[in-house]
Design a protein around this nucleic acid. Structure first.
Lengths: 329, 329
DNA sequence: ACTTTTTGAGAAAACGCTTGACCACCTTTT
DNA sequence: AAAAGGTGGTCAAGCGTTTTCTCAAAAAGT
């Protein structure tokens, strides 16, 4: 990499002159200007952003956003919310961990050495110790899990309540044999959703049945197919997210069963565009994701400026009932 | 913001000692160490990343990725591809323009002052002059449009051919009155798709009918509803992307028409997860988006290192036929 | 008690850049 | 011809770090 020094040497001028030419400041003769510009091109000079940044004392605030899967609409919308709050002057470095735990850990550890002054971690599976450690160095906002560390703020949806609402709704439309296709037990979100489901079932005196599945359409399809083919009795299905629900629906249709009459289905996340597009349209527990992203970013800024007031921000979910669960009793 | 200097002053030590403590290097007495750590906490010291970066001469390569809409799966997948190629050590600053032209321009202009050493611009509507100008300062990789500027590389899908393929397919399954729901005329992609459609129609001696619509489900729905309600004769529909197709399908269903028997529909982009989920599943022109993202990133690196060989990289689309167009003649 | 080694701490250069102060030289004015 | 003003350019300080070198003081060895 070439520097101003190199350019100055090459053109027999001083560093300051070169700098002035390149920035269009001060007065410099046309001749020298040309020479310098030419030399710059020849050496392929690029200004060192860091040096400039420190010389001008202009600090560009940079935050890191770590998501497990940017293609998942949930995280895409989260990202959108964060970006909205960041405007044009705060930088967001996006890191997709591809649901790879090892990669996620590396990303988290490296972030602060890469300029991030704060971290928003969407739905993580890394252990608490790492969060604790990293939060000693830079502030962290996490989703869907509450921590009691000083520099960590949680933005969570009340997953328990959302699951409870969904399950109760299924019960109300007359389902008796309600199954829950859940996520892995590593994830706080999954656990809470499972608990909410179980609570509603218990309350109604029904027996709960939980199958850990995963997060995508394929997993939902496979699991549901398996369940149906071994003759499991199901008339209601609460899925841990919309994608799983969609997969399950595919399996149900393939089996020739009707939705919602044979099996009523409800998802979680409420990716509106997706849910409404489907036929039958998919009932789901709505999370105000974009808003959550905005709040996360705002809280992170406050945390960075050390003017934080709260430790967590809880959003309350809302049930969106569509065709997939609207059964006439 | 506090600096090492402040800490040194506060603890009556030197800058170097403070630095050593904070980095756990060299030897420092336990007493001083404590004092310094405490002061650091008190002042809320955060190391200046830029200063460190320049002192250690470690340059973190940073690139900017500008997309019009991260929630759109196309761009989400693009992002994923870019991230894949970037691994853990190259930083991606993501900027969502929210399809706001003004914002997009600002983002592009600012990027280089914010540390980006290269720019990947996904599907832009900004004028060529801006691209030309900015590419004098930092290398640019663009999608879907070919430029003849020195520092710009294009990664494009052969949109013309894709549209041609799709239209021809509709013709082959027996459609006669094929309508194209297109994007705006500002976008190169849209134009190419329209041209491909028109070419195929001309070739078959059919009359083309193009309606500029937009990019999302709602727009597709509204336009199609309008067309149907005014009694337009349609038996085939080529949509400029999947979302528009989905909206159109909703309108068609609402009208009580069958797909593909009354109207065969085909989309563009082939967001697999989405297309397969639908019923009927949606035929679409497939773009290898993730791969395109990877290639874009790779080319950008080469451009930054000035070892670029090519000016553009063309991907050839492939038709994925599913239920929505599979009509028995 | 004297030398040698270890330990703790500071001074200073360097990283690449910006910027205000400064200075020669050349014009123009009076 | 002297003063005043304009050019074109250099010097040097400063931004916040890291890191090597140096040095004094304390600890250990003789």
């Amino acid at each position: 990499m070439s520097s101003l020094k190199d350019l100055a040497k090459l053109t027999n001028t001083s560093i300051s002159t070169v700098s002035k030419v390149l920035n269009g400041k001060g007065r410099v003769s046309e001749k020298k200007r040309r020479e310098i510009l030419e030399a710059a091109k020849k050496l392929g000079y690029t200004p060192n952003y860091h040096a400039r940044s420190i010389a001008t004392k202009r600090r560009v605030l940079t935050i890191g956003l770590i998501v497990p899967d940017i293609v998942n609409p949930f995280f895409a919308m989260l990202t959108r919310g964060v970006q909205k709050m960041c405007g044009e002057d705060i930088l967001v470095i996006l890191m997709d961990s591809f649901r790879d735990l090892e990669r996620e850990e590396k990303l988290i550890k490296k972030a602060r050495f890469q300029g991030a002054e704060g971290l928003i971690i969407g739905n993580s599976r890394v252990n608490d110790e790492l969060i604790k450690e990293i939060s000693q160095y830079i502030p962290v906002v996490v989703f869907d899990k509450e921590y009691d560390y000083e520099n960590v703020v949680s933005v969570v949806l009340d997953n328990y309540y959302g699951a409870y609402l969904a399950t109760k709704h299924l019960i109300e439309v007359g389902c008796k044999k309600i199954v829950h296709l859940g996520g892995t037990h590593e994830l706080y979100v999954s656990i809470k959703r499972m608990e909410g489901y179980e609570a509603a079932m218990r309350e109604a005196g029904l027996q709960s049945k939980v199958y850990p599945v995963g997060y995508d359409e394929k997993k939902g399809y496979e699991q549901m197919k398996k369940l149906l083919s071994r003759g499991e009795q199901i008339d209601g299905l609460f899925c841990m997210n919309d994608l799983v629900a969609i997969g399950a629906i595919r399996a149900i249709k393939e089996k020739g069963l009707r939705i919602p009459d044979d099996i009523a289905v409800i998802g979680f996340d409420d990716d509106q565009e997706l849910c409404e597009i489907l036929s039958p349209s998919l009932s789901s527990v709505h999370q105000p994701v974009v808003e959550m992203g905005e709040v996360a970013a705002r809280l992170l800024f406050e945390l960075i400026r050390k003017e934080i007031k709260i430790k967590r921000y809880i959003f309350t979910p809302r049930l969106v009932i569509r065709e997939s669960s609207l059964r006439k009793r």
